[in-house]
């Protein structure tokens, strides 16, 4: 049953890691604005899309040649 010491030690360390992660995310302000990121992630970045389309079209041109 000595192994129990080890498992308890590990579980405590794990729990502590999660606590630290939680506290640091609070500190970094991850919980301050819970609305805007949900909108932001739905934006399609058309500027990047345009670039991609450009590269694709030039690529196809090259293959055509």
């Amino acid at each position: 049953m000595i192994a129990l010491y080890l498992t308890i030690f590990i579980s405590l360390i794990l729990a502590l890691i999660f606590l630290v992660l939680f506290l640091s995310s609070v500190k970094n302000g991850q919980f301050e604005d819970s609305y805007t990121p949900s909108v932001r992630m739905l934006f399609e970045d058309e500027f990047n899309l345009e670039k991609k389309e450009d590269t694709i079209s030039t690529e196809t041109k090259q293959t055509n040649d």
């Binding site: 301050e32 604005d33 609305y35 805007t36 909108v39 932001r40 739905l42 500027f47």
Partner: peptide, 27 residues
């Protein structure tokens, strides 16, 4: 509205000297 967020977070397209802009919608 979400359009407001979108346009205000793309200010860098209006002026290249703005490097970053981030909206906090509730506030």
């Amino acid at each position: 509205c979400s359009s407001c967020i979108w346009v205000l977070e793309h200010l860098d397209k209006l002026n290249e000297n703005i490097s970053h802009s981030e909206v906090n919608f509730p506030a």
